[in-house]
Design a protein around this nucleic acid. Structure first.
Lengths: 339, 339
DNA sequence: TTTCGGCATGTTCACGGTCACACACGCCGC
DNA sequence: GCGGCGTGTGTGACCGTGAACATGCCGAAA
């Protein structure tokens, strides 16, 4: 078992075939679980494979079958909790189904950057694409580029012509808004995400829908950028007026920044201002005060996403288009308004 | 130009060659920037490529060159801010150098799970491996498995025989500890990360080193699990005794949980207890109070990591083994002790 | 008995690139 | 005038696998 450092060619099916006394095609049949193989022949081949530590050459297989078994992920903001959780779940699910994941991160959302990332993925002949770059512009560019593989976009408003799978953002936003209204709030602001993010828009729509459904007058949402920093500065601005008793922030980070600003102004959360977030990041329970928010199951999203995609690639698998229902998590940052 | 839905074979170099009136080898030479090609021949080939929308077949190239140009990432906890940031940076850097990234997430740290993830990566004939699974056990298992490609581990104590690249965790921990001591604290606890995490160990060592260097008596560190939840419960336990004025938490999440527990006990941060974290997640500035912490440049880590790996794969590139120096960020969670 | 069909296996070729080698041509030096 | 060399290009083999087709054998049906 010496294994002289002499870098030698990896064993191929022909090497296996020779040692097992069969043709290379028989070895190939064993690899592909062909039914018509005598059990003892199969075993002999398997033994030789083990002995030689044979590993199939993926490039050769991809070449001859013209199937890469790679699923590409196009993602923006992959460092954030939500997308990162989904990506991890996608990888796990894909691996379990014998697929590989290749990711490309978007550096910006201009067309060139998208085209570059997509070209990088296309160069690997991906068989499916998951888009976790929920900016409207990305989807538009994507539509123009006529992707030639099945693809799924995570997060959407639900009425685009593309295949999407999503947590029902509108329902989640209505949940949050209703919670504030039921507590007695009537002057509620909405700190939204960036205008071109699909989720931001959906949450905004959910907010507006619920407000009007409950006959509560609304003010125009403020457009933020998802960061805690923005939440902080927006909060400082808002507090110069103070014509509200509650704010629904479109994500937990901005809610955190808002709470920071409220405290800086010498006010209390939820005594003077109630604040509710969205996402339920793992830290939200330990913010001060613990943040009331809407929980999304990012991992489940990732799993379903793979199931959907594999269903497209290989019609044997089927999956119904369901959205995931978000859940309201009530903690300490919301309460009845003080008048 | 019609493009009947009729799914037809993608153009190959032979198709390009025929239309350009050259041999397939000439096309190959154009692709590989061979010097001896007449400019007009080259242009003709390039024109035909553009017209046909020719894309090289990666599998075919990989098969004949036996080079995959894939870098694998073995990662645990990829949903956390630090690892996620490094992964994104690695992907960007690798793409710029013409490499692809393939990730495998560890579901647990047992040997079977590691072997499974590694097999998944090995099956793609990765040319390099980045390990962002900074548990000691992972490294040990890795060492046993005799990886046959160059690999780099992010985060380490610096004295393993493996190639590593890291932020100098010990220096960072000493920075944090010295800050507390300089403020006048003498009774300082350390809430460490899980015992088998390399970074946790390094930060603990930095803490102990600095404490003894400054002749401050130490108590045994508490072993946590990185989560805010753990920080919270550990804090509640600790506060039943209250024989300390400061705590150095091994990451920002645990620091957050600690601050939560301190407030729950009716005490003030930093009035009664000073708390310092590690990592500087983007939200840390908006915690209450804003968290004093140690900043790590995860993205730079990712970039250098790729440079190092590519240097191994292709010796033309060189990179020196430098560690990245972390930086103390003083905010509101630390102050002088009250007696 | 002959024919036929299915099983187990082998033979040959194709996939789309790169590599080693061959070759034609023009230029240089002796 | 001829050999050698560098430039630009072509020919054929080869990488490891899977698909199509061929083959030999055996048992069941005609």
């Amino acid at each position: 078992m010496s294994g002289e450092a002499q870098r030698t060619r990896a064993p191929s099916i022909r090497d296996v075939a020779r040692l097992a006394g069969v043709s290379h095609q028989t070895v190939s049949r064993v690899l592909n679980h062909h039914p018509s193989i005598r059990p003892e022949t199969k075993q002999r081949v398997l033994d030789v494979m083990a002995e030689l530590q044979y590993k199939p050459n993926r490039a050769a297989r991809a070449l001859v079958t013209s199937r890469s078994r790679i699923i590409g992920i196009l993602s923006a903001s992959s460092t954030q909790y939500g997308p990162a959780s989904s990506i991890a779940a996608i990888e796990t699910a894909a691996r379990a189904s014998g697929y590989w994941i290749s990711t490309a991160n978007l550096e910006s959302t201009d067309a060139a950057s998208i085209a570059d990332a997509l070209a990088h993925l296309a160069a690997q002949s991906i068989e499916g694409l998951v888009v976790i770059a929920p900016q409207v512009r990305v989807l538009e560019t994507l539509a123009k580029m006529s992707i030639d593989v099945p693809f799924v976009t995570l997060q959407s408003t639900g009425d685009e012509p593309v295949r999407t799978l999503s947590v029902d953002q509108i329902a989640g936003a209505r949940l949050a808004t209703r919670h504030l209204i039921e507590l007695g709030h009537r002057n509620i602001y909405h700190l939204a995400g960036p205008q071109d993010w699909i989720e931001a828009e959906a949450r905004m729509r959910g907010f507006l829908d619920e407000m009007s459904a409950q006959d509560v007058p609304t003010t125009a949402p403020i457009l933020g950028d998802w960061t805690a920093d923005f939440g902080y500065y927006a909060g400082r601005e808002l507090l110069t007026v103070r014509d509200f008793t509650a704010i629904f922030a479109s994500n937990d980070q901005m809610a955190l920044g808002l709470m920071h600003a409220v405290r800086d102004a010498g006010l209390d959360v939820p005594g003077d201002v109630s604040i509710i977030g969205f996402d339920d990041v793992p830290e939200a329970a330990h913010f001060w005060p613990p943040l009331t928010t809407v929980r999304q199951d990012f991992a489940e999203l990732g799993r379903r996403c793979v199931a959907l995609l594999l269903g497209d690639i290989d019609p044997a698998v089927v999956e119904h288009h369901s959205t995931i229902v978000p859940e309201l998590i009530v903690r300490g940052s919301t309460g009845r308004p003080s008048f």
